[in-house]
């Protein structure tokens, strides 16, 4: 070790490989972040994600405690375990953040999303759309002679499956709320 080792040639690793997405398994986590509902708080949270190169798959936000002015932001994000830990720590140290919960590890939890689908179809396709809607317990919230607007609530996979089925039948527009999530049980 005491020999003076002066290295020549190329190097393969560097600090910039840290977030190499292939280095480890990518996980999907759902985070619940309770924040003060003050001006700019959402921009702060989103800015953290874009500034540090983290992913946002889904994001929902609403004030959940009107007297305490607290909002709950539910974020679905992906990354290596190390990146997920960083995201939680970075969120946790923000001044308006009260609590960061990782519902994926603190689970079990329930996750629900609401989606609206506008489907334009006539004839057999129209009937098929209605039948499928029934199976998915989607509600018809608007209808004309050549279109429906369906409302579906459920886990993200269910919403995706419904969208896949509607696409060949004439799906023309989609609106989704993003994921809302809570842990199960009394706590």
């Amino acid at each position: 070790m005491s020999a003076l080792k002066i290295k020549k040639g190329s190097s393969k690793h560097s600090a910039y490989d840290l977030r190499n997405p292939n280095a480890e398994i990518i996980e999907t986590h759902t985070l619940a972040v309770v924040v003060d509902n003050e001006a700019g708080v959402l921009a702060r949270v989103i800015g953290l994600f874009s500034g540090r190169g983290y992913n946002i798959e889904s994001l929902t936000v609403a004030e959940v405690d009107h007297t305490g002015h607290r909002s709950r932001i539910t974020i679905v994000t992906t990354g290596t375990p190390q990146v997920i830990e960083q995201i939680k720590a970075q969120l946790g140290r923000m001044v308006p953040v009260h609590r960061v919960q990782d519902l994926t590890v603190e689970g079990p939890s329930v996750e629900r999303e609401l989606a609206l689908f506008k489907v334009s179809a006539t004839g057999e396709k129209r009937l098929e759309a209605l039948r499928l809607a029934d199976i998915f317990r989607a509600n018809v919230v608007d209808s004309t002679l050549e279109s429906f607007v369906f409302s579906v609530a459920g886990a993200t996979e269910k919403i995706e499956a419904f969208a896949d089925l509607m696409r060949p039948l004439g799906l023309i527009e989609t609106a989704r709320t993003g994921v809302a999530a809570l842990t199960r049980g009394p706590e």
Binding site: L4, I6, K7, K8, S10, S14
Partner: peptide, 24 residues
């Protein structure tokens, strides 16, 4: 040099040519 480990240090009188790899 950037991207090198601690024990690959260049000292003053060392030949420095080509010491830094392409990744660095």
């Amino acid at each position: 040099p950037s991207g090198e480990p601690h024990n690959s240090m260049l000292l003053g009188d060392a030949s420095t040519q080509d010491a830094i790899g392409t990744t660095g």
